[in-house]
Structure formats: structure tokens, C-alpha cells
Write a protein that binds this DNA or RNA. Structure first.
Length: 519
RNA sequence: GGCGCUUUCGUCUAGCGGCUAGGACACAUGCCUCUCACGCAUGGAACACGGGUUCGAUUCCCGUAGGCGCUACCA
């Protein structure tokens, strides 16, 4: 048993976009598989035909591609254990259900959903189990002839797992240790549905994990209550000796309030809950995604990895390879983790700064386009391109301490808008304007214009030389007012750099405009 | 309601019988400074409660309380 090659799986239902919690589960499976030199399988659990959403499967595949989580086999990846889509494995499940029926581990039940509802209404806390199955319509209470007749007549039936009561069932969980419950509180779970002639999750899951030789089941804590049922199923099939080991991960909780993280929390607080933007085919509703919001996949992965696990030291920024090396299921926390999206933004900030600004160009181009910065007769494409390059250079030059407080490339725009767009109006009530622009400022700016006109080469050094000697001679301190003139508020780089960037003509033009408006 | 899991700063967490209970995010203050930032420095902030076990419990056990999950012919 210890000699088996490590094989794990991520098995989502194609019922919509992949939730960020699912991403983390997949990530942990991936880290675990890589660390042990094993395989990660991508299986589609589409046994609920009523909840199938077209496009969901493709979405999930694309999301993992973006995140850099690679599968070794499964839907769209191939492999020797297929098919990997449960809806294509009907015959396999039928065979195994029959096996359970044949050796008395399961039985046929004819009770309709309506009859079950009636029973639940009649008896408080009704549960289909050893204590009640004697009064229901099933192959345990009906004669063999009667059962055969009902089936022959085409009556719908389900197959239920026959749970023997009064036994302590143990689950050995890697994260939580020994978890045990008494089988009496378990109900006779439906294994095979009449409605769509497909197995339920429980049956399909066990059969597939066994057939695909899965060694470790790493999944969310919401599955812990049904883990004993799964253990019993492995027993019923006689597969106990190759039963996978379980690890139930803590859940991701709402940033504020009670309960687990949901899509609504993201909408309310303004952060994505899905890796990629999702366009709902039915409602047409669009849900934001980490990719479209401007997150780097490395940042998302790093952030998620640390929500429920940490390497046991103070290291927070880690590459995928480092995480693969350090990951340890037994170091996962047991309690749910609040989803701290503010910290997620900090991670993005960190990763953004690791990249040279030139890498941001595509994103930056999108912003410029969205802001309407494009070539016009007055402003040629080359000019814009040149300005863009200068902004990027400017942002990149950290010897000038220009690394900005940006979590996303889009945060760059308010910080460099004034490079591209001259202030049209000035807000006299702006705190910085009021503080910087006084009675006699207009006259001072006029003087400064004179000084600047005399600068031949409008370079940082020359501007600085000229302006500073003027300052020394006159005692003027023009910087804040000058900044108001060029930027309209208290923002931006060193004034000499700013003026040099804008060029002589534009600098003077903005100053004259400010004087005209603010005098 | 029943069953299970869980509980260290506001948040994510380190700690695996003896520590001034550590780090990060967030927050506050200071320094830097022609602005906004960045950066740097500093600060406030936690072992849910009650019993045990032990020379000694944040750490082990049992209760209580809170939190989370499950309780479908959904996964």
C-alpha cells in the first residue's frame, strides 16, 4: 500500500464558474502531486444532469491554464484511466451497483420523491435507514416476485446503500486525525438515481477513485460528514486495502459576517470570487474574475496557498517550486479561514513590483485606450508611444523611489494621468491648491515662466540649475504652486523631472492657463 | 433539532509542557521630503471560559460557550 504511486484528483462539477475555494483545493492537490512525483487527475463530475451549465468545463480548464496549475491526465488531457467525464461512465457504474445489489449491500427502493416528502412531513426528522426502511416500499419489504413485477411494469426505482447500524466508523484524516461516528446516524444513501439513470456523487466518486487508483483524497471540509459513508462503500466493495487517505481542508469564510465565502460577498465588497470573468449563459450576468481585475496568477496562487497552510516559518512570498517543496498537509490549519482580500491585493502589489514596468505595457495600453488617449491630428501615435515609454521608465526608476503604491496596473492611471492630460480647470477649494496658491503666486509664476523660457535644453539638470539659482536669488519657493499649475493637485514626481517630461511648450502652456484661472 | 469539525492580536497565522507568546496584512505615529506616495523606524493589539492532569499549561484531557459544515433521487 505504501508502494503505490501518488495519484490525486480534482473533480469539479460543471455547474458554473470555478469558485476560488475550489481553486485552492486544486492547488493543494497539485502541490501534493508534484512534491511526491505523482499524478494529478482532472475529472468532471457531471452526474447531476439538471445542473449542467454549458461552457463551465471549458472555463475551468482555461482557469487552471492561467493559474499555472497543470494536470497530468483527465478531461482534455488524456490518460489511461478514462473516460474522465462521469456521464460517459454509465455502464461502469451500473456494473458496480449490480455487484452491491448481488451481495446484499444495497437494495432497490420504489418510494417516489412525493412519497418521501409525505413521510418527512408526517414524521419529524425522518431518515431512510435501518429503523424506517421496514415500512417503505423496497426490495427488503416486498417479495421478489413483486419487485420483479414493478420493475417489469416500468416503475421507477433507486438503489440505496444498506447501512448496518450500531458500528463506529473511523476515518483517518491527515489533517484532523481519527474522526469517528456511529453508523446508526447515517441514512441509506441513494447510490443510483431513477431520474437520470446516473449514480450519485458518493457511488461515482468511490468507483472512480478506485478505478483511477487514487491514493489521496484532498477535498473541502464540507465532505467530512460523508467520509464515513465513503469508508463503508470501500468496505462493501472489498477495496479497503487500497482505500485512499483523506485530507479535509478548512473552508474559506466570508471576510465579514458569518458563513462561507460566496459570490455575493465579492459583489458587495468589490473583489472577485472567480479566477476568470464569467458570463452566465442563462442570465447574461457577468461576474468579475481575478485575471480581468489585473491580478497576476502567481499572486493569486501564492495568496491562496497561504489561506489554510503555511510552511511553519515567516516566509510569505514563494514561487510555485518553493511551495511544492515546502507543502505539507499535516501543517494545514483545521479551522476555516476568513478570506482577507486586502491581503490578496498586497500579494499582487508584491508580485507587480517584481516585474519590470515594461511587462505592464499591454495592461497599460488598455488603460490608455479606455481613457481615450489615442492619436489625433494634434497628437501623433509616436508621441503617445514616446510618452508611454517615458512613463514606464519613470515608474521603473526606483533609484528615484518611484515604486508606487499600486496593487494593480490600473492603479497607475490616477498617478500618471497628468502626464497625458493637462488640467483643464483648477479647484480653488482643493486643500493642496489653497495651501499652495496664494495672493502673490500668479506674479511669482509669471517670473518663473520667464526663467523657464531662458532654458535652452529643457533637461532636468538645466531646469534645475536655472530655477534653483533664481530661487536663491529671490528667496522664492515655487514648487507647490508650480505643481498645482502642472498637475492641478499635490501629486506626481519631482518638479524638475515633471517639467522636463512635459517639455518646454506644454509646461509653459499649463502655467499660463493656471495663472489665468487662479489669479 | 441531530451528527461532526473547530477556537492564539481586527484578519491570515507561528508555537507541537517552561518564550518578555513571533511574523505578515490592516491601523496609528514619527523620520525622509517641493506634493502624493515609496522606503525606513516605532506603537497599540491575542492564547474563548470553567474544570482537571502536571512541579509547571497557549500547548494534553473533559465540559461549557461561540464559529463552521453536513443533515436531497446536489455535488
Amino acid at each position: 500500500m505504501s508502494e503505490r504511486r501518488v495519484r490525486v484528483r480534482f473533480a469539479p462539477s460543471p455547474t458554473g464558474p470555478l469558485h476560488i475555494g475550489g481553486v485552492r483545493t486544486a492547488l493543494y492537490n497539485y502541490l501534493f502531486a508534484r512534491q511526491h512525483g505523482g499524478d494529478l487527475i482532472f475529472r468532471i463530475e457531471d452526474t447531476d444532469s439538471t445542473r449542467f451549465v454549458p461552457g463551465a468545463e471549458e472555463y475551468i480548464i482555461e482557469a487552471f491554464q492561467w493559474l499555472g496549475i497543470k494536470f497530468d491526465e483527465g478531461v482534455s488531457f488524456g490518460g489511461n484511466y478514462g473516460p474522465y467525464r462521469q456521464s460517459e461512465r454509465r455502464d461502469i457504474y451500473k456494473k458496480y451497483v449490480q455487484q452491491l445489489l448481488d451481495n446484499g449491500k444495497a437494495y432497490i427502493a420504489f418510494d417516489t420523491p412525493e412519497e418521501l416528502d409525505a413521510k418527512r412531513a408526517e414524521i419529524e426528522n425522518f431518515q431512510y435507514d435501518a429503523s424506517t426502511r421496514g415500512m417503505m416500499r423496497n426490495s427488503l419489504t416486498l417479495s421478489k416476485d413483486e419487485v420483479d413485477r414493478l420493475i417489469a411494469e416500468g416503475h421507477q426505482y433507486v438503489v440505496r446503500f444498506k447501512i448496518e447500524p450500531g458500528r463506529d466508523v473511523h476515518v483517518d484524516d491527515i489533517i484532523r486525525g481519527d474522526v469517528s461516528i456511529n453508523s446508526s446516524i447515517l441514512d441509506d444513501k441513494v447510490l443510483f438515481k431513477s431520474a437520470d439513470q446516473l449514480p450519485t456523487y458518493h457511488l461515482a466518486n468511490i468507483v472512480d477513485d478506485h478505478l483511477m487508483e487514487v491514493t489521496h483524497v484532498i477535498r473541502g471540509e464540507e465532505w467530512l460528514p460523508s467520509a464515513p459513508l465513503h469508508v463503508l462503500l470501500y468496505e462493501a466493495f472489498g477495496w479497503s486495502d487500497t482505500m485512499p487517505r483523506f485530507a479535509h481542508l478548512p473552508l474559506l469564510l466570508k471576510p465579514v459576517g458569518n458563513g462561507k465565502l460566496s459570490k455575493r460577498d465579492g459583489d458587495k465588497l468589490g473583489f472577485p470570487v472567480f479566477p476568470l470573468e464569467w458570463h452566465d449563459p442563462k442570465s447574461g450576468e457577468v461576474s468579475s474574475g481575478y485575471r480581468e481585475k489585473g491580478y497576476l496568477p502567481e499572486a493569486v496562487v501564492n495568496f491562496l496557498a497561504l489561506l489554510g497552510w503555511n510552511p511553519g516559518n515567516d516566509q510569505e512570498i514563494m514561487t510555485m517550486d518553493e511551495m511544492i517543496r515546502l507543502f505539507d498537509l499535516s501543517k494545514c490549519s483545521k479551522a476555516g479561514a476568513r478570506f482577507d482580500y486586502i491581503k490578496g491585493m498586497w500579494f499582487n502589489h508584491q508580485y507587480l513590483l517584481m516585474h519590470p514596468a515594461i511587462d505592464w505595457t499591454p495592461e497599460f495600453d488598455k488603460i490608455l485606450k479606455a481613457e481615450g488617449i489615442q492619436s489625433t491630428p494634434e497628437r501623433e501615435a509616436q508621441v503617445i508611444e514616446m510618452m508611454k515609454q517615458k512613463v514606464i521608465e519613470y515608474v521603473d526608476s526606483d533609484n528615484n523611489k518611484k515604486k508606487r503604491n499600486i496593487s494593480f496596473v490600473s492603479d497607475l492611471w490616477p498617478l500618471c494621468r497628468f502626464f497625458f492630460i493637462a488640467p483643464e480647470t483648477y479647484d480653488k477649494d482643493d486643500k493642496f491648491v489653497r495651501k499652495s496658491w496664494k495672493e502673490d503666486t500668479a506674479a511669482e509664476m509669471d517670473e518663473l515662466i520667464g526663467v523657464l523660457m531662458a532654458v535652452d535644453h529643457f533637461s532636468v539638470e538645466e531646469i534645475k540649475d536655472m530655477v534653483e539659482s533664481w530661487c536663491e536669488a529671490t528667496g522664492h519657493k515655487p514648487w507647490n504652486a508650480w505643481r498645482v499649475a502642472l498637475v492641478s493637485t499635490g501629486q506626481g514626481p519631482d518638479m524638475y523631472e515633471l517639467a522636463a517630461f512635459l517639455g518646454k511648450e506644454e509646461t509653459l502652456r499649463r502655467m499660463q492657463n493656471a495663472i489665468a484661472q487662479l489669479k
